[in-house]
Design a protein around this nucleic acid. Structure first.
Lengths: 385, 385
DNA sequence: CAGGTTAGTCCCTGAACGGGACGAAATAGG
DNA sequence: CCTATTTCGTCCCGTTCAGGGACTAACCTG
């Protein structure tokens, strides 16, 4: 690859990036990119030839309104083919198939006891991908993104620590890739949730270079940290383990081996257990959320205590990072009293200027955040080929 | 600027970057950069003409050892001219003048009660820059970097909050720039300390894309956070305010307006005050460090208590960011019992995998870190013109 | 219908990279 | 000592790329 052809390739990408925002004419692209109309015309010719861009039948208005030849609007062609996203959680497997524009055309969920069944989840996931492909009539997949419920080692991409008992030392992307015969990329749930909310959820408005902390409150507690629009993974891939911040010298022993981890106080199963004596024997998270919405005092108390604890940890993190947005995701992320308590706790404990500049929002994607993030990951991978 | 001339400029920078590592021949540069010998020759011609590169008198060995025309070694010319760094601390002003290679040729310190005297520090700093210039026989300066003891607003570059009573709403770079008639760039002490230790101190070995947290323990407590080799400033420029993490509900009232800030427990003046009743009436930080080195039990107790508190906050931050290195700077950063306590506290409270992958080192630059960072900032600025 | 305006294209120039040939400067070997 | 060989650096020239100017296309206004 010569330096000159690299320049042309870079300019092609510049043009494609300009077109990503919306349908534009060649003249618009020239104005936006600073390239000459001649060059843009040539580059667009290349892009049309390689099928990445197409002319629409619609005509645009001339730039300055008045009379003049109308422009031909261009748009990025949605590349043919599809991708899949797989979300393996602690108690479920969720699969989505999407076209190359990111629109999900088919989705499927199944409850699976992932924690106790070792690698069975990969078999289930592979089967579900095939089924979803079949029911939606989709052909071969270009790539698969995958969500893993725990941190991955940055260099080996293996499951690094004690969080998933049956998976230690496993390379999940490789496991699923072997079963599907497809390229698979994996990342953890909080990171993918962060990507999803940044691109398609509560963080959309914050712009692509935002500093955002996504917190997943569900059976565990983890954070995905986006700084300058890019995921921060940490030097060994363990960044965002906010659930293992210590909040008490003599707290419960955590699955990570420490004592007093925040997660042991606020994980969803623990909250349900706290409430169960006073409510139904079969109380579950969905009912807790309903009770909270209905204003039940006991539930509110428990959720706002949890929110206060999480907010306390987030306040310290915000004081150090000064992000512009915190998104609360996971099954508990939409509980109003929890969100309110997080906000209050941040206002109380974070550095005042930082707290004033910080937005706290519930996630918009709910339990689908991870699979949407997995689809994004797959799209990124697919566009690299 | 056309796209084609931009390409040449980029290649010029590539060549210059290759030469930054050490003296190389044109052929070496071609092999390293992937550019052709012809192109490299042409680019080097440009660079020599503009004075950025020069041929050395030394001759290199041919690439594969054996016979062959010996190569002419090239090196980056140190650009003519000088820059200055100014460090305005709470009780002193320090000025350094350096050549364009970053070697400091003259340095000066004076005690100034900056906190209480408003903008007088700028007059003093301007005078000291002039004096240092005169005594070292240096001509006009290309740029000045400046260290401010508190956070700057990211957009307005003004002093944003209540930390410096006499400076509120001031634009320090503008103040000093007006007095000197020179371009001045400002940043806060922790950020500049981080840059200095990363480039010329304890972080040298970590590589240029490291994740590093520099903690300044002195009359205040702040952190400079470097992620992927770049300073993280936060959405409004308040990142790194680790001194204002809350450690006690009913702690002392802090200058930031909150109660129970970590800074109120571990700032150097507070530690000295704690110790004074048991020691000399005129006890100061330097003596405390001596007593610590000599093994004095009382001092060790106080310093390790402080280290434990700081380590506690750093452990939480590390659990979230998973950095590879923490550098302890500021006047207290070299106190062995404090460093040990920080290390122990991180091992105790941080997520175990993260703690295992994390190095904790005392700063190598001591109280000169800020001025070295200010010089770096000035060099960056000067190379942009 | 004529004049004005904007979009897109064609042709050509100037700029940049890189391949090949060539002289320069050393070593190795006879 | 002389020649063959090897590597370095440069010169010449072809290829590729961006962009300016002229030209055509397509539409609006009066």
């Amino acid at each position: 690859m010569t330096s000159l052809s690299r320049l042309r390739a870079a300019n092609r990408r510049t043009v494609a990036a300009a077109l990503a925002d919306g349908p534009l004419s060649r003249a618009d692209v020239a104005r936006l990119t600073g390239l000459s109309r001649t060059t843009v015309s040539s580059l667009v010719g290349d892009l049309i030839e390689s099928g990445l861009v197409s002319e629409t039948s619609a005509r645009g208005r001339p730039h300055k309104g008045g009379g003049g030849r109308p422009s031909v609007l261009l748009r990025l062609s949605v590349p043919v083919g599809h991708v899949a996203g797989v979300d393996i959680g602690h108690g479920h497997v969720r699969v989505a198939v999407a076209d190359r524009a990111g629109s999900i055309v088919g989705e499927q969920v199944a409850p699976v006891a992932v924690d106790t069944r070792g690698t069975e989840a990969f078999d289930v996931a592979a089967r579900m991908v095939g089924e979803t492909q079949a029911t939606t009539g989709v052909g071969a997949l270009a790539a698969v993104g995958m969500c893993v419920p725990g941190p991955l080692d940055r260099t080996s991409s293996r499951v690094s620590n004690r969080i998933m008992p049956g998976w230690r030392g496993l390379d999940p992307a490789d496991e699923l890739g072997r079963r599907l015969g497809l390229p698979v990329v994996a990342d953890n749930d909080a990171n993918l949730g962060a990507l999803a909310e940044l691109g398609h959820g509560a963080g959309r408005a914050a712009g692509p270079a935002a500093d955002l902390v996504y917190v997943k409150l569900a059976s565990g507690l983890g954070a995905g940290i986006v700084l300058g629009g890019r995921l921060h993974r940490g030097s060994s891939g363990n960044a965002g383990e906010i659930g293992h911040v210590q909040v008490g010298e003599d707290g419960a022993v955590c699955r990570c081996g420490n004592r007093g981890c925040l997660e042991t106080l606020v994980a969803a199963p623990r909250l349900v257990e706290l409430l169960r004596p006073a409510y139904d024997e079969g109380l579950d998270v969905a009912q807790v959320l309903e009770l909270d919405a209905a204003g039940d005092a006991g539930v509110r108390r428990v959720l706002s205590d949890a929110g206060r604890a999480v907010g306390r940890a987030l306040a310290d993190l915000a004081t150090s990072l000064n992000p512009e947005l915190v998104v609360l995701g996971g099954s508990l992320g939409r509980a109003a009293s929890l969100v309110d308590a997080v906000r209050a706790s941040i206002d109380r404990y974070a550095q005042p200027d930082t707290a004033a500049a910080l937005q706290v929002l519930p996630g918009e994607l709910g339990e689908r955040a991870e699979v949407v993030g997995a689809v994004s990951l797959a799209l990124t991978r697919a566009s690299q080929t």
